[in-house]
């Protein structure tokens, strides 16, 4: 089944400082959408607003054209920049709650077999990040919003995760933001840059320079 997610009319300000004013992002199943922007440009806030954990002053999120007025319906899953799992929840328990077969994770990252019964505090940050990303990608949702999924991952795991993301996009829409932008560029079917509160669809990578995101490519 094909799903389309549209976000627009989103307005957010903090202390009279306008963060998001003119946002439009459209994505559909089979696509990975890259979202880039300078620090404090509002990328994480945008994801939180779409997910529902942050209330914008205005918000319009539509799935297949239908406005999503009630948040947390399991249609959209979200990986925050910060750790996802509460410290008191073991990996095994979290997988059970998400109704994910642990074997799915072990198949992609065999080394995780040894840590599935541990608690987050007993696992390295990189391993934890991998588990969280795979958990969100396997959650029974149609859309996955990933805020800095590559943080703390060693290069070989980044490559495996990229292959996995390319595989998962066949079944759900994936929106990624990460400052490891070369990976985002490589993965993305469409790229948006968030600058001055607005989204700019970017086909030309040189635009990243003109929008002040990178000095040179």
């Amino acid at each position: 089944m094909m799903y389309t997610l549209e976000m627009d009319g989103i307005y957010l300000e903090y202390d009279l400082r306008k963060i998001l004013t003119n946002v439009y992002v459209k994505c559909q199943t089979g696509q990975i959408i890259g979202l880039l922007g300078r620090n404090a440009s509002g990328k994480s806030s945008l994801m939180k607003i779409v997910f529902g954990s942050l209330e914008g002053h205005y918000r319009s999120v539509r799935i297949n054209g239908e406005p999503q007025l009630v948040p947390f319906t399991k249609r959209i899953s979200y990986l925050p920049q910060e750790p996802l799992l509460p410290s008191f929840v073991s990996i095994h328990k979290a997988l059970k709650l998400f109704k994910i077969d642990p074997q799915k994770i072990v198949d992609v990252f065999p080394f995780t077999n040894d840590v599935l019964n541990l608690k987050p505090s007993q696992i390295s940050g990189g391993t934890m990040r991998i588990l969280e990303v795979i958990m969100i990608l396997n959650a029974p949702s149609q859309f996955a919003l990933l805020d800095e999924p590559f943080t703390g991952l060693m290069p070989i795991h980044v490559d495996t995760l990229k292959e996995y993301l390319s595989e998962k996009k066949k079944e759900k829409v994936i929106v990624i933001t990460d400052h490891l932008y070369r990976h985002v560029l490589e993965l993305s079917d469409a790229l948006y840059v968030l600058a001055n509160g607005k989204t700019y669809i970017t086909n030309d990578e040189d635009r990243l320079v003109s929008l002040g995101y990178v000095r040179e490519l």
Partner: peptide, 15 residues
Amino acid sequence: FRSQQFIFFFNLGYS
């Protein structure tokens, strides 16, 4: 003081 954990439960469909 422990609000970060809510994202986990939001993902499970709990407000």
